[in-house]
Nucleic acid binder design. Structure first.
Lengths: 386, 386
DNA sequence: CCTACTTTGGTTTTCAAAATACCGAAGTAT
DNA sequence: ATACTTCGGTATTTTGAAAACCAAAGTAGG
C-alpha cells in the first residue's frame, strides 16, 4: 500500500502536501494514522512542524516542512582524468564540492583513496549524519555481481568492487552507477523532471547514453545499456577506435576524435572543452566539426528515438557547452531519420547542471534509495528500537 | 508489502509454493495469516485444496493447486488482413480459437463486430466466468488518452477507442496493446520466460519490435516505442514506403518489399508466407532475399542491442518460419556491429508460439493484469461484500 | 510395537495498529 | 454574539495478525 511513513514524507518532500489534512486527503488514511506517522517522522528529525499556514475557512493548519538538513548524502563522480566529490543535503542541494585531476587511466588504487579522503573532509565539515553515498564510473556496471566495473577503455577498473572503499565513511549504503545513467538521473531533478521517458546523451571525450523508461533507469542485462559510441557506422569503416575495434561511431563523432581532427588540421588543442570554447567564440572550423559530430550522433540516435519514443532528448557532457551548434546537427539527422510519431512531441534540450551534472546525478541516485519509503521505514524502526 | 492474498496466489500459480508452509517460509507471514488468505482464495474458487503431498518428516501437507479453470480471459489479435480470437484459461492454456480473414485495410466498423461476435460464441462455449480481454492492434497505442490507435499504415483505425466494443461481453477490463509488444509478452511465457531484458522482433509484412526492460514492456511516451521498420537507412534512400515517406528500412527488408522483389524477378507470389515456404523448400532466391533482409534488419538491431543490452533477441512473425536462414543474416550484422559486451551473453532465438504468438501474448497481457495482486484483492473484496 | 520427535494445520488468546468517535481550539461567515 | 468550518489531539472500538496452544499424522530409533 502507499501509506507508509516514508510515502507521506515523499508527499511532503515533493511539495504535493503541506499539512496533515492534505496528507489525509491524498492517502485516504485516518487522521490518527497520519498524526502517528507525522510524529514519528518529526521525532526522527525528517519533518519540521513549521509555522501555521493560511486558514481555509477554519482553524489554521500547522505546516509540514521536509527537513532537508537532517542529514546528507555524498556524491563522487569518477572521471577518466578528473574526479569530483560533493556533499548534498536531502533536497539535492549542493553544500560543498571539490575536484581533482589524476593521470589518465589511473586505477582505483590511486583514485579511490583520494576520493574517500576528500569525501571524509567534506562530511566532517558538514557535521551532519550521513545517509548514503552515490558514485559514478565511466563504464558499464555489472549488476549481476553487485558493484564493479567492466569497460574496454577503463581497463584498470575492470572487476573492481567499489563499495568497500567507502566503508570508512560509516556503515551506509553505497550505490554505483554508470556516468551516463547518472547524468540521466540528474535531469530528472532538472529540466526534464516531468518526463518519464527520456534519453540523455553524454557527449564528451566518448559518447554515452542514459535511458529512462517509465521513470526507471534502464541498465540492461549486464549493466551495459546505453552504449552508443561503439556502434559501427559505415562512414567510420576502417578507422581504429580506442576500444580496440574499428569503425566505431566515436572514431568520427567522439570528442577525442574531434580533437584529433583539429590537431591534424594544424590547430593543436588537447581537450573537447577547448573545441567547444572555440565554437562558442565563433571559430568556423570548430563549429563545423561539432555540427558534423551532432549529425553523426543523430543517426543512431534516431534509431534510439524510434525504439524508445521518449518525450525528450537531453544533451549533456562537455559538448553541451556548445549546445546550439551541436544540437543543430543532432536535430538535422534526427528529424530526417526518425519517424513522424516519435518526433511529433519530441524536445531536444541542453542538460540542466552542466559540469555539475554528474555529481547531481550521483546524489539523486543515492537520495532515490535513501529516501525511498522502505529506507525511511527502516530508519524509523531503528530509532524506535532504542 | 508482498503479503496480500493475490501475492500468495502468484506464488502458487508460478509454482514457487505448493503448501501453506512454503507460503509461510516465502512470505514470512504467520500461519494464521496464511490460512486466512488461503481460505479466502479457496472460497473464491481460485485455489484448490488438493490431495495430500509427500511427508517431509512429519504430517503430510495439504497441497495447494491454482484453479486455472476458475475463469477465462479472451484474446483478440487484430491483423491487417486476418484476425484471430481465442479463449484462454487462467494458466494461459488455449481452450478454443477461431480466425477469419477480412479485406486489407478494413476499418473497425467491419472488423470489430466480427471479433466480438466470435468472442461471444467462444465465451458461451467455455461456460466460465470472464475476467478480462486482451486485444492487440498492429499500430501504436496512444497511452495518454487510454486506448486508441494511431498508425500511418492503418489509417482507418486512427483515434478509435476499442474498449467499448467489448462491453457487451461483460463488465470486465479490456487491455489493448501493440502487436509487437504483445508478441514480446508471449515470449515471457515461452522460451524467454526467464529473461528480464528482451527484444522481440516481429518480422512479417512490416517490421516491428517489442522491448522488455527489467521485466516490463517499454511502450514509450505515446505508445510508439519499438518502431524500427520506418527508420531511415542509406541503402534504401529514395525508395518509397507504404508509410508515405521514403528511405525506410521496410522498403528493403520488410516482408511486403521482399514479395515485391520476388514479383519483379518474375516469381509471382502474394505473401511473405509463400516466400518462407520456398526458402524452407530450398529455393536459393528466396533464401538469398531472406538472408539479405536479416542483414538489413541487423543494422538498426545492433544499435538497439547496444542501447538496451538484452539477454536475448527473439525473432517472431511470419519470417520466423524460415528462422535458420533469416537469423543467419541477422547474426551476421549484429555480431559485426554490436559491441563485445552487449553480444557476449546474447542469444538469438526463434519465437515460441509461431502464429499463435499474438493470441498468447494478448492472453498474457490480460492475465498479467487480471491476476495481479491488486486485481485479485478486489475480486476477494467483492466476494466478501455479499 | 512403542516412544520421542517433526511437520502440518486448526483454535484460542494476546497484542498492535488504525479507524471511529468525541472533544477543544481557533478561525470565518452572518 | 452565534453558528459553522477547519484543525488537531485523545479515548474507545474494531480489525487483523502474531503468538501460544493443541491435535493429528507422519518419521526415526530402540
Amino acid at each position: 500500500m502507499s501509506d507508509s511513513a516514508g510515502h507521506l514524507l515523499e508527499l511532503v518532500r515533493t511539495g504535493r502536501a503541506h499539512t496533515r489534512s492534505e496528507l489525509r486527503r491524498l492517502t485516504g488514511l485516518s487522521r490518527t494514522a497520519v498524526v502517528a506517522r507525522v510524529d514519528a517522522l518529526a521525532d526522527a528529525g525528517l519533518l519540521l512542524l513549521g509555522a501555521e499556514l493560511e486558514s481555509t475557512g477554519g482553524r489554521r493548519p500547522g505546516g509540514l516542512v521536509f527537513n532537508k538538513d537532517a542529514a546528507v548524502v555524498l556524491a563522487a563522480a569518477i572521471g577518466r582524468s578528473r574526479s569530483q566529490v560533493a556533499v548534498f543535503d536531502l533536497a539535492g542541494g549542493e553544500l560543498a564540492t571539490a575536484s581533482f585531476d589524476h593521470e589518465l587511466g589511473a586505477g582505483p588504487d590511486v583514485v579511490m583513496p583520494a576520493v574517500t579522503e576528500r569525501l571524509q573532509a567534506l562530511l566532517e565539515a558538514a557535521g551532519r549524519p550521513l545517509l548514503g553515498v552515490g558514485v559514478s564510473v565511466p563504464g558499464a556496471i555489472d549488476t549481476t555481481d553487485g558493484i564493479s566495473v567492466d569497460s574496454p577503455v577503463l581497463a584498470a577498473w575492470a572487476g573492481v568492487d567499489l563499495a568497500p572503499a567507502f566503508a570508512e565513511l560509516g556503515a551506509v549504503p553505497t550505490y554505483v552507477g554508470n556516468d551516463a545513467d547518472v547524468l540521466a538521473r540528474s535531469e530528472r531533478m532538472g529540466h526534464a523532471a516531468q518526463y518519464d521517458d527520456l534519453i540523455v546523451v553524454k557527449a564528451s571525450t566518448g559518447l554515452g547514453l542514459g535511458i529512462i523508461a517509465e521513470g526507471r533507469v534502464v541498465s540492461g542485462h549486464l549493466g551495459a545499456a546505453g552504449e552508443i559510441g561503439h556502434t559501427k557506422v559505415d562512414v567510420a569503416a576502417g578507422r581504429p577506435c580506442r576500444c580496440g575495434d574499428s569503425g566505431c561511431l566515436e572514431t568520427v563523432a567522439g570528442g577525442w576524435s574531434l580533437v584529433n581532427q583539429m590537431v591534424e588540421a594544424g590547430r593543436p588543442i588537447h581537450h573537447v572543452r577547448e573545441l567547444t570554447a572555440m565554437a562558442v567564440a565563433g571559430d568556423p572550423d570548430a563549429k563545423h566539426l561539432l555540427r558534423e559530430s551532432g549529425r553523426r550522433l543523430g543517426e543512431p540516435l534516431a534509431v534510439a528515438i524510434n525504439l524508445l519514443n521518449p518525450q525528450a532528448v537531453v544533451i549533456g557532457g562537455d559538448m553541451a557547452a556548445a549546445f546550439d551548434v551541436y544540437a543543430a546537427g543532432v536535430r538535422e539527422s534526427v528529424y530526417a531519420r526518425a519517424s513522424a510519431i516519435a518526433t511529433r512531441e519530441l524536445r531536444i534540450l541542453p542538460s540542466t547542471f552542466g559540469d555539475r551534472a554528474g555529481l547531481v546525478g550521483c546524489a539523486a541516485m543515492a537520495l532515490d534509495q535513501v529516501l525511498s519509503p522502505a529506507a525511511v521505514q527502516s530508519l524509523l524502526d531503528k530509532r524506535a528500537e532504542r
